[in-house]
Design a protein around this nucleic acid. Structure first.
Lengths: 205, 205
DNA sequence: CGTCTCTCCGAACGTTTGTATAGTCCGCGT
DNA sequence: ACGCGGACTATACAAACGTTCGGAGAGACG
């Protein structure tokens, strides 16, 4: 726990209302929304409650901005993902909660729109840190930068390779391994297609 | 899939920006926030994009109220995680939904109990596919199998290394890189401790 | 009793914000 | 050459919204 002070019943109700609004609408309520919900006739009434909640350390507000209410979140480990602990300086602080730098979370890390993943088989990309059985996260789409790692479809098979444009209509698919050779492919090859760019890797031991 | 029409590059960027705002601030941006972010001088420019996104079925708006933007969510990907597409046999089935073999999900993949993560700095484990800036997922605890990768605390510094028991009270911390040498440490060294076993790796490009 | 705190009213003020009108520029297809 | 849709500017207005000022009743506490 942190420095949060106790709330009155009404204040707790207001806090819960704000929380439910964020959950439902993904957006905090306005001062007047709160007033309406509790049959408070003046926005000041609701504003007073917000001032209290802020003073007691339950929310933060951004003055002058609509819906500028943020909940001060407490450690809800299950929902958030895996805590990221920072570099440690001395003693055993790696176990301390205060050292949390953020949380690992799929949605936050990779986004979820238009992404998919493929399990890699083979070690042709091992020097790039992509090993057998790893999962790669792929951004669907056919555009890429020279030298990026992509998932390419060739003759019905999917491969993960680094891609380079050799010239106007010729690509080089470059493995990252001593045991594999680059492949070359014409851009207009009928059975060739870029499925997407690799934006992440996930491995479980 | 629903009735969503294709977006232009700019529209997609605007949509992504809105998504990132909601993720960060738990609150959609205002029209002017969008305009500012894309260096659009008039709120109308941003508003036009929103109108497009709404017409094409990607967002909904509540007229007249601030930040009245809602993303139209598709198939609850947030809950499930990122779909894993399998090996493909022919044609272009990698884009087909039927090929989904499962879903990548932190909770499912790593569990969440007693796990934390550390961002790796340095390349001492590059041959094990753990690169600079990667996140390693760590199972808290001091027991390990010989040859496993662990996070060790020494003199207040955390390092990721492969660990071997040399003899009764002596460990070898083995890097996986040509540019690093193994370290040896006494088991009863006062400033030495095993923070946990590495059970996973996550990387974002 | 006086003095707190909590809860709220009423009215007003100034900013933030969504929306509208009118027009420009550019690339694309016919 | 023409029209069309996408992207944008400039200006303006009205609604939404946060905030402030001044006050008031009810309950708690010494």
């Amino acid at each position: 726990m942190t420095t949060k002070q106790d709330l009155t019943k009404k204040q707790r109700a207001v806090y819960e209302y704000i929380r439910s609004c964020i959950e439902e609408n993904k957006c905090p309520p306005t001062v007047r929304d709160i007033a309406d919900h509790f049959n408070i006739k003046s926005p000041k009434g609701a504003s007073d409650h917000l001032a209290m909640l802020e003073r007691k350390g339950w929310i933060t507000r951004t003055p002058g901005i609509s819906r500028g209410v943020h909940l001060v979140k407490e450690e809800e480990e299950g929902e958030e993902g895996i805590p990221i602990l920072g570099k440690v300086a001395a003693g055993h602080p790696i176990l301390a909660q205060e050292n949390v730098m953020g949380h690992l979370n799929f949605a936050q890390l990779f986004g979820l729109q238009d992404r998919f993943s493929v399990q890699v088989s083979g070690d042709s990309m091992e020097k790039a840190g992509i090993h057998d059985h790893d999962y790669v996260i792929v951004q669907r789409g056919s555009d890429f930068q020279d030298g990026e790692i992509v998932v390419a479809l060739m003759d019905g098979e999917a491969t993960v390779k680094r891609i380079y444009k050799e010239n106007a209509n010729r690509y080089r698919l470059q493995p990252e391994s001593d045991r594999h050779l680059p492949q070359y492919v014409e851009a207009d090859h009928p059975d060739f297609r870029i499925a997407g760019r690799v934006v992440g890797v996930v491995r479980r031991y």
